[in-house]
Design a protein around this nucleic acid. Sequence first.
DNA 1: GCAATAAGAGAAAACGTTTTCCCAACTAGG
DNA 2: CCTAGTTGGGAAAACGTTTTCTCTTATTGC
Lengths: 351, 351
Amino acid sequence: MASDVPPVPVFPKPVTLRDVAAQAGVSVATASKALNDQGRMTAETRERIRDTARSLGFRPNSLAQSLLRRRSFTVGLLTNDTYGRFSLPLMSGISDSLVDAGVSVFLCNVEEDPRLGQLHVEAMLDKRVDGIIATGKRIDRHLPVDLSSLRIPVIYAFTQPDPDAVAFVSDDAGGAWLAVEHFCRLGRKRIAHVTGPASFAVVHERAQAYRATLIENGLPVIEPLLGTWSEAWGHEAVAKLFDTNGERPDAVFCGNDQIARGVIDALRERGLGVPNDVGVIGFDNWEIVAEATRPPLTSVDMNLAALGREAGLTLLSLVGGKPATPGIRKLPCRLVMRQSCGRLPDDEKDG
Amino acid sequence: MASDVPPVPVFPKPVTLRDVAAQAGVSVATASKALNDQGRMTAETRERIRDTARSLGFRPNSLAQSLLRRRSFTVGLLTNDTYGRFSLPLMSGISDSLVDAGVSVFLCNVEEDPRLGQLHVEAMLDKRVDGIIATGKRIDRHLPVDLSSLRIPVIYAFTQPDPDAVAFVSDDAGGAWLAVEHFCRLGRKRIAHVTGPASFAVVHERAQAYRATLIENGLPVIEPLLGTWSEAWGHEAVAKLFDTNGERPDAVFCGNDQIARGVIDALRERGLGVPNDVGVIGFDNWEIVAEATRPPLTSVDMNLAALGREAGLTLLSLVGGKPATPGIRKLPCRLVMRQSCGRLPDDEKDG
DNA sequence: GCAATAAGAGAAAACGTTTTCCCAACTAGG
DNA sequence: CCTAGTTGGGAAAACGTTTTCTCTTATTGC
């Protein structure tokens, strides 16, 4: 019965240091030292060992090294963002910063499930990760795991941290300031704010910065419109803002790009031109949305890849034994200019 | 100078089997056997060892186990999809299928960079992953890595496989059939196809299935319109299809959801109703797009999560020593009904 | 020519497990 | 009472490295 099954691929045993040593006619100790630039031996011996290692295709077994060094060169990346809009750039930044240090990343999707979270954390601990980065889809929600008393360094990035932890989040107030200030400089006088539900902390943070920036600039505050993070809400909000006898806005700062998309479409449908009649700025700079609006959407970018890189580097230094002061670090946003705001009257530009 | 730096967190050494054994007054051998249900000893001894292990919070060091068993319970996941639309569901499916087997996943983003690919593959090999899953954003493109002669099992999922490899891809022809056949059953007579660039293999595969299905049903074939994967192209295509004196389509099968979005918007702008005047079906079932169109978009879903699960399970069985016949397995798509096609005249439904 | 030093290389311990083999102490059978 | 078998448990090897220590041989200084 075993004669006509497809051939089982044969996986040869990896070549070990012992093989190299035997082939080169030295002891494993010497072989190890030759390859690691340690110990004393003739240049000839060292070269010979290296040559045989190369020719045999020797690669040291990381498991053995890790066991000995008590350092696995791996970290765990916990996330509950299956959706990916936020975690993808974040993950990519984290991964970038680590791969150069030879550190590999375990991807752990914990959803909202504490059991899954526990499972993954234990697996990471058992595999002796050097540290853990916790990531999420919301700054104001905890992952369904307790990382507060682990024996390894933990960094939080774009998720609610435990007290006394090291955390990186975006500076949402700064992002809002960037948007509103930009409108002000362009000479917009009635700037509205259409954003997400009150249950999100960032909604309040940005709304507060929105108000403050308007007041700074001596402009009227239109009470922010809270709704959902959807295109449909963008449509609705335009109806509320523009079906009025009073003065209508000449700019709308939106809480995310989907709302902005809805706003732009709704404005066009009622014959208002963007950016001429109304300027629009979004948030998140989700390219797939921001580049598809007509005109393309100027939007606040949270620099999540940079945030991820920062988190990765900080974890690395923590793992290396350098202490980091606990606390939340807010990293600046940037405004990505497209065509939904119009140009500055003078020399500055908004392309 | 070291007196006023923040306190360095102290990371206590993990408790080892030796600690457990000492505490319980037995040898490590006995302790190991007690915890693994091996060997012979009194039930009392076994229980006592287990109790002390529990009370000490002992967790076996995976590195040591892996070294001995020559099996690390980790796999590498290679991808070049930073964008994430396809790889996220895929990754989530893969991860789901593996986590239950206690297998952790190394995330390796190789972009399009052979150097990065090489780097990651070597890191995986060094860390003695049990297998590798290669994933991409295109079925018809190779990752920038050579996995053809590795000493470990490799599975390809949603990317171009090497010959004689085991691969899983979506059945795009089947997906196209699903869409066109659905239109036919709804009584649509002139069904158009607006899709992406000719450089994509799936464009031809789907177009071919589109033609075949129309012919099967005795309907006229409108030559597929090839363009880009963008909303803008959806707009343009509508202009081409409907600015004509001849008969106009009553259904459009789109190559992805963004094109469909453009098509629906363009139809609305020229006063054509969806689904009454024209039915529209998209591809990819990207919820964020499909649910935001007005009306919500019926779309072909490639079941990527299921595909990922399948890939994960197959890798597991390969790692377990069971052979798998090489070749490309096409997994069926499914049609997700929303409101862009209208209902069947009779008893079937499209909700 | 002899001690002191340096150079080159190997032996062995260590990392934390698992597993095979072995040994002592019982138990049962005659 | 003596042997054969069973039971409970430990010693040691193994996985593949790195590192410390030791040993032999060559070189130098006087």
